[in-house]
C-alpha cells in the first residue's frame, strides 16, 4: 500500500501501527473529498453514469476477490448479483418494503442462499467448483426466465423504485454516485479489514496451500463457506443497487457474461491484493466507452488489451509500478 511520510522520528512498533492507522484515515478522507467533488467535475451525466457503474463493478469484483482468496473461483457470481437484484426489486415492488431496507434484506437473503449452497458445493475443488458455479448460474437464468408468476419472466421487472433514505431519493445519477461510493468504500474497508484479521490470515494460508492449511488444523471448509457467504452476500447487495438504479431488471441483466467480466476484472487488475479487483473494475468498466469511436474495432481492441495486459503484466495492472521499476533498474 502507499505510505505517506508523516515526518515522525524513529517510530516504535506501536507508533508504526498507529501511523498506519492515521495514514488510512487520511487516505479515506482524501478519497471522500475527491468523491465529493467528482459528480460536479465530470463533464456530463453520462460520465456520472459510467462512474456509477464502475463503482458497482468495483463492489462485484471485491466480493469475488473475497471468494477467490480462499482458493475458489466462482463462475456464477452474476447469479448472486441477480438473486439480490430480484429479491430487493420484488420486496419493494410487491410488498412495499422501502428500497433501502429491501437492499439489506436482499443482501442477507443472498448470503443465506450462498451459505446453504456453499455447504453442498464447496466440497468440490479447483476447476470442478468453477464448473458447478457455472451451472448454478445457468440454472438461475432459466429459473428467472420461467418462474413467470414471480419474476415476470423475460419481460423483466419495470418501475423499480429508487433507493430512498429519510426522504432523500438516490435515483438521480449524481446522488446515486454518493450512495454507490459509500457502499463501495464500506466494502473496500471491510475487505481490507478482513484480509488483515485472523480470518484473512487463515484465508491466505488456504489460498497458498489448502492441504498444508488443513494439516495445520485450519478448518478450511468453514472458512470457505464463510468467504463464499460474505462474497455472495455483497454481490447480492451490488445487484440490488443496480436494480434500484436502472429501475429495470430482466434475466438478461445478470448473465454468464457478467460473471466472466468480474473474473476478468480480477485477473486484469491483479489477484494478489484486494485492490487489484478495484483497479480491474476501474480499468475495464469504462474501457468499452473509450473505444466507442473505433466503431467495429471496439471489441477487438478490448480483447487485445486484455491479452496484452496478461501477457506483459502477469501480475495484473497493480504490478505495473514494480514492473516499470524492474525495467528501469535493468537499464
Amino acid at each position: 500500500m502507499n505510505t505517506v511520510d508523516t515526518h515522525m522520528t524513529q517510530p516504535t512498533a506501536a507508533s508504526a501501527s498507529q501511523r498506519g492507522f492515521w495514514t488510512r484515515i487520511v487516505l479515506v478522507t482524501l478519497a471522500c473529498a475527491v468523491a465529493y467533488a467528482t459528480p460536479g467535475l465530470l463533464p456530463n451525466l453520462f460520465y456520472v453514469h459510467i462512474a456509477n457503474l464502475t463503482l458497482v463493478s468495483g463492489i462485484f469484483a471485491l466480493s469475488l476477490w473475497i471468494i477467490y482468496c480462499v482458493g475458489q473461483l466462482s463462475l456464477g457470481h452474476a447469479a448472486f448479483a441477480g438473486l439480490g437484484a430480484y429479491a430487493s426489486a420484488l420486496l419493494s415492488l410487491r410488498l412495499g418494503v422501502p428500497p433501502f431496507v429491501s437492499l439489506l434484506i436482499a443482501g442477507i437473503g443472498t448470503a443465506t442462499v450462498a451459505a446453504l449452497l456453499g455447504a453442498v458445493i464447496l466440497r468440490l475443488r479447483g476447476v470442478y467448483f468453477v464448473l458447478v458455479t457455472f451451472l448454478f448460474g445457468q440454472m438461475f437464468t432459466l429459473m428467472v426466465l420461467n418462474w413467470q408468476s414471480l419474476t415476470n419472466g423475460a419481460n423483466g421487472l419495470i418501475s423499480i423504485p429508487p433507493i430512498t433514505i429519510l426522504g432523500l431519493s438516490f435515483g438521480p445519477r449524481p446522488v446515486f454516485f454518493y450512495f454507490a461510493f459509500v457502499v463501495f468504500l464500506l466494502v473496500l474497508l471491510f475487505t481490507w479489514a478482513l484480509s488483515r484479521s485472523t480470518f484473512g490470515r487463515a484465508f491466505d494460508s488456504i489460498e497458498q496451500n489448502i492441504d498444508l492449511a488443513e494439516s495445520c488444523g485450519i478448518d478450511t471448509s468453514k472458512y470457505q463457506i464463510i468467504a463464499f457467504t460474505i462474497g455472495s452476500g455483497i454481490a447480492g447487495v451490488g445487484g440490488a443497487m443496480i436494480a434500484h438504479y436502472i429501475r429495470y431488471i430482466s434475466p438478461d441483466t445478470f448473465t454468464f457474461h457478467n460473471s466472466v467480466a468480474y473474473i476478468t476484472m480480477l485477473v486484469v487488475g491483479g489477484r494478489s491484493l484486494f485492490w487489484g479487483a478495484v483497479v480491474g473494475a476501474a480499468f475495464l468498466t469504462p474501457l468499452p466507452e473509450f473505444l466507442r469511436d473505433f466503431a467495429g474495432l471496439q471489441h477487438i481492441i478490448y480483447g487485445a488489451i486484455m491479452i496484452l495486459v496478461l501477457r506483459l503484466l502477469p501480475g495484473g495492472l497493480i504490478s505495473l509500478p514494480a514492473t516499470l521499476r524492474r525495467i528501469g533498474g535493468g537499464k
Binding site: V260, I263, T264, V267, V268, H299, I300, Y302, G303, A304, M306, I307, L310, R311
Partner: peptide
C-alpha cells in the same frame, strides 16, 4: 482469461 480475450478478438 487469455482464451476469453482471444474469443472476443476472433468473434
Amino acid at each position: 482469461i487469455a482464451t476469453l480475450g482471444i474469443s472476443v478478438v476472433l468473434q
